[in-house]
Structures are given as C-alpha cells and as structure tokens.
Design a protein around this nucleic acid. Structure first.
Lengths: 348, 348
DNA sequence: AACGTTATCGGGAACGTTTGCGTAAAAATA
DNA sequence: TATTTTTACGCAAACGTTCCCGATAACGTT
C-alpha cells in the first residue's frame, strides 16, 4: 500500500508558483506579498498539507526525536520516568523513541546502534544490568551524540546524570527496619557493578554501622538480571535463610526484585512482617493492596525523567560544545505500611 | 552539539570513486569489480560507515517504522503486547514508536497527526476510552496509511483486527463466580462505547442468563477513564453496595480497574472473598502476592501484539491494495486463586 | 534620462542515497 | 585487424525541503 502525501511542489503547480515561493509563503517570509501568502496558506489548508519531516531532517540534519533506552517498560519506575520524559519532550517539539534492552548487553548494543543510525538527536539512557563495558556509549558520545544518563548511570563518561538519592533512600529504609527491631537484615539488589547497586549498598552499610549492627556480606545477594529471572531471587532468599543467624528483615532493591521477593517469601512460607520485615525500593502504586501492604522507598521517577530530558535538550540545542556537566540527585520518599512494622516488637 | 556521521560521499572522496560506485559496491552489485568492492567494504568497515536511514526514507518513501498508540504503557496488558509487537517488528527490520493517549481523545488525535506526519509506515492502535468518533482514523486510513486495531478495536473501519476472546473470557469469569455461590455479581468496566466493554458485558450477561440469574443494570458500572481515575471506581463500588441486594461477587474488567477495585474494597472494609468474591480481567503477573491472591482472566497479550504486527507488516508490504481483512480472536485463560473462592460456600 | 531601491518572485544547489543511462577501456569475436 | 560484446565505472536525476543568489518590474532619486 502506498500513502501519498501532498508536497510543496503540488501546491506550486496548482497555484503556478515556484517551490521556493511556496516554501517562503508557508514560513511567512517578509519577501512574499500578502496576497500570495494568503493564497498559498489557504490552499495548503484546504488540501491539508503537512511538511515532510523526513525531508526536513535530511536538510537540517536534525530529527527532533529523542531515543530512550531502558531495561523494561513494564516496570513502574521506568514507565513513570518515561511519562516524565514525554511531558517535557512533546512540549519542546521532540518525539520520543522508546527501546528496551531487557537487561541484555547485546540487545543494548544493537539498539544503540540502531538508534544512532536512525539519527536521534540525543539519547536518554539507563544501562542494562549486564553492562560492564561502556565503550559503545563512549564511541557515540565522543562523536558528538548528546547523551544523558539517568537512574543507572555510568560514572566513567563525563556528561549530565540524573539519579534518585539512592544512598539516602537505602539508608532510611535500612534504619527504619532497625528501629523496628530487625537485627539481621538481608539485602537483595541488582548486579553489583550497577551504579544504583553500589549506592544503595553503601546506604545500607552506613545504616548498619551507625546503629551498631555488623555488616555481613552473606546477607547481600545480587540478582544479576534485576529480578527478571525469578529463580535468581528465590535462590538468594533460600541462601539467606540457610545462614546460622536467619534474617528478620529484608531490604529489596528495585521494582522487579521487590515483587519477586514477595512471591518467593510466600512460597517459602515466611510470614511478613513477623518472620521477616520487608521494605522495597519500588515505585509500584499498588503497595497497599499487597499482602501485607508494602512499605517502600519511592523514587521521584516522573521528575527524574523530566530533569534528564531538560538537560538533554539543552545539550542538543546548545550552540557551543557543552563542557560543564551536572549530576542531579533527587530525593526519595519513605512510605511506611505494614510489611515493615513488626506486630510485636518486644517478641524478639 | 553536532553529530557528523560519515557519508557515502566521504568514502568516495577518500577512495577516488564516485558515489554511485560506492553505493553499488556496498550493495554488492554485480557490475562492480571484486577488488573495488573489497576496497570499499573494508574502508566502510574501518570508518564504521552506517547508511543514513533518513535519506533512504526520503528516497523510498518508506520509513521502516511502526507507530503504536495505546492508552498507557504502565499497564501490564499493553506492556506485554508491546513486547510482542517489538519481537516481530525488529525481526522484520522495523522500528517501533510508542505513544500514549492517556485515555484522552484529544491527545490521541494529536499523536495520530504527529505519527502520520512523521511518516510511519503503519499504525497499531488500541483506542482511548474517550474515543467515540473515528473520523481521525478513517481519514488517514482512506489516504492509504495501513492501520491494524488490537484489543480496543473500531468495528466501523474495515481493516485487520486482533482481540482476545472477551466474550468467552467474561462468560467464564462470571460463571466461575456463580459456581462459587455468588448470587449477585457486580461488573465494573470501561467506557460503554469501547469494543472490549460491550463484548465483556455480553459475556457477563450470557453467563447470568444461562445460570438463571437475573441481569440487573444497577450492578453494571462504567469507569469512563478505564480505572485511571480512582474515585470513579470507588464511587461505582459504593453505589453497588447501596442497592437493596448487595453484591457478593465482582467481575472487574481491565488492569487498572481491577487494582483500583482492590484498593477501594479495602477502603470500604469489604472482605475478599467472603463479603465479595473478586475476579479481574487483568494481565498482572503479581496476582498471587495480592491480598488475597487474585483470580484473573488472562489475555494472551504478547501473542495479540505479535499477530497484529504480522498483519500490519503484510499490509504494508503488499504490492496491491488489501481488500480481504481478518479479525483474529485469541483465547483467554482463567486462573483461579483465592479471591474468587468463598471459604464457606454453604454459609449463604 | 539614467540610475539606485525596493518588493516579489524563480532558479538551482544542497542534504545522502539509489538507479537508469551513458561510456571508456578491456576482452572477445569475427 | 576491425568489430562487437562485456566489464566497470561515472553522470545526473530524483525524493521534499530550505535558502542563497539572481532576476524582473515598478518605483523613486538625482
């Protein structure tokens, strides 16, 4: 099937004008007489003329489109972040192309290549949990393609970055568990080389230290696929419960990890919060209908998306090469529900 | 910032060849000598040449991109469907542009215009819950832009359509509630003019009829924003419980509606399943961690996306105008958990 | 009357690519 | 050796648009 849009040439032919005159009339150039303008404008309106953005892109070497790479859109944090991205992008006249790496380094590379060759004007990236090497990003970036990292950032590349305060969020979550009587807190997180993992781990450690609890690396487990593979999480939990001192608290990082933990705990027949108090680093809006209602650290996902997009667009539209880069950190929010509050604090 | 990709012209200049020779060498044309080909290929590889897809699009008047319009990506059904769409599209060499209508007719129109003017080669659409008028679709469609509807389809436009068996899914869900002792079943669904709403309502009615239960329109409530506005759902539930005969069963249609119902029932302090048995038409993969574990009708979202995409691509690549259209219906799956099974069937 | 202004428009190149056509040199044929 | 065929490549147009550079006419200025 073919879709034949009307071109500036058609208008010219119909009106007996050259393409350049039509083009200028459409743009409202001062060197076109009022009547010609009116003629062209009215005719264009009548036949519903739309400029061909592809031809424009070719000419201006600009696309007015932004590429997004995230692991999964079926993840509350990212779908909210994408909404934030869209809200800014559309207002500024940019289109948005969303791609999913599905936590695979290879897919990430392929997508990156695809997106770059499709000439997006800039990239918003949250790296996959498999990614340890950043050369693919660096190559494009050094060629002049603007990139802004958000959430899972890569510190090795010097550009704008936007994250939640993972350290403080993790600290607050962990300390909250401690204050609720937890003595041994398990931490299940994403791949260890991910920026969010190290930041959250540091917050977790600091809360333990400050409250006089010993850090036990046997209590920290990495889900290398960010909770996408359920068995990884169940296995991690099983191991944690095999230790001499069993965990009585759990701090789960990430959307998928948190829900996977909930499923696994149910399967292992552990009661929340009595057997184990749980708090998750997740943006689900259904925390309260879980069993029991889930305490969470909530990230300002929408705002993160917005801020990252503003930075990216400013970078794209900057006349001179940008040399000063910002790293923005947005605050998290601790939402306490039942899953982290032991019914009988004195019991232990 | 500017991003300067290498062109075929650069290669020609560097190798002392014309652009046409380089182009042909790259495509492996038979009229280029083996050594020249080798020369060009190696050089192109070395400087990492990528053809400019924009120039190609302009030439071929093809984009190799597909537009998707859904209400929300933060909806399990749609994110799964999108995964299905991507899985086919990428294999066939198409890129995918995702847009969200957020259940707004106006945004849908704007997006549609935007997508069409960006010259996507075809469109995959699930209409917004606000959409009652289909002229915007029809106009584009009649101009020759291939469109495939999925899930929320529009019967008035004659093209390919792909849906789940909403009638049977609703019938099964309702009958399941009846078999579990429900005498009065409330049904909360999306806007009444949506195809999925009427299909599901019919299934619901048929199950009542077949089992000798009277259809009471006071038990059917429409959430005009598809559950996006929580208050709509809570209000609907409140009304249902104000009837002389209170509902003892609830069939909730749609992802957002189902979770909103769960929240509202909790707020209204109704016990599930004893006060009211619940089954949802939803694709959440967390049904089992809900309180109580949620019975659901599951749609083959991934497959729906795949089938729709295959149909769309076949339409795009068809040489002659397509005149025979298919309407595919995929089967749903009933997953029984605790929320729909009354502990004491005899109690009532 | 000869020139400079101004207003209004068209010609054509350019963006990166493909492709029909033309053509020189090399090879094959007569 | 003269002619034809083949091989291997270049030229230029085309896709839709913008924009620099001219061109033309109608004025106004000396």
């Amino acid at each position: 099937m073919k879709f034949e849009p009307v071109t500036i040439k058609d208008i010219g032919k119909a009106l007996g004008l050259s393409t350049s005159t039509v083009s200028r009339a459409l743009r409202g150039s001062y060197e076109i007489s009022a009547e010609t303008k009116k003629l062209v404008l009215e005719y264009a309106e009548k036949i519903n003329y739309r400029p061909n953005p592809i031809a424009l892109s070719l000419k201006e070497r600009r696309n007015h489109s932004l590429g997004i790479i995230v692991c999964e859109i079926a993840n509350n944090f990212f779908s909210q972040a994408i909404n934030g991205i869209e809200s800014i992008a559309y207002n500024r006249g940019y289109h948005v192309i969303i791609s999913q790496s599905h936590e695979s380094y290879e897919r990430e590379s392929v997508i990156l290549d695809h997106l770059a060759s499709r000439s997006v004007d800039g990239l918003l990236i949250s790296v996959s949990s498999e990614t340890k090497d950043y050369e693919h990003f660096r190559q494009l970036y050094e060629k002049g393609l603007p990139i802004v990292f958000f959430d899972r950032i890569v510190n090795e590349i010097n550009t704008h970055k936007v994250i939640a305060d993972n350290f403080k969020g993790a600290f607050d979550a962990t300390e909250h568990l401690i204050k609720n009587g937890c003595k041994k807190i398990a931490h299940i997180t994403s791949a260890p080389y991910l920026s969010i993992s190290v930041e959250r781990l540091e917050g977790y450690k600091e809360a333990l230290r400050k409250n006089g609890l010993e850090y036990d690396e046997k209590m920290v487990h990495y889900s290398y696929h960010g909770g996408m593979i359920y068995d990884e999480v169940e296995e991690a939990l099983r191991k944690a419960f095999k230790q001499k001192q069993k965990p009585d608290g759990l701090f789960a990082a990430g959307d998928r990890i948190t829900t996977a933990c909930l499923q696994a705990l149910k399967k292992l027949d552990k009661k929340i919060p009595d057997d184990i108090a749980v708090i998750g680093f997740t943006n689900t809006n259904m925390g309260e209908v879980f069993n029991p209602p889930l305490s969470v650290v909530r990230q300002p996902a929408f705002e993160i998306g917005q801020v990252a997009t503003e930075l990216l667009i400013s970078m794209i539209e900057s006349k001179r090469p940008v040399t000063e880069f910002e790293s923005k950190t947005l605050q998290t929010e601790l939402i306490i529900r039942e899953s982290s509050v032991k019914v009988n604090n004195a019991k232990k």
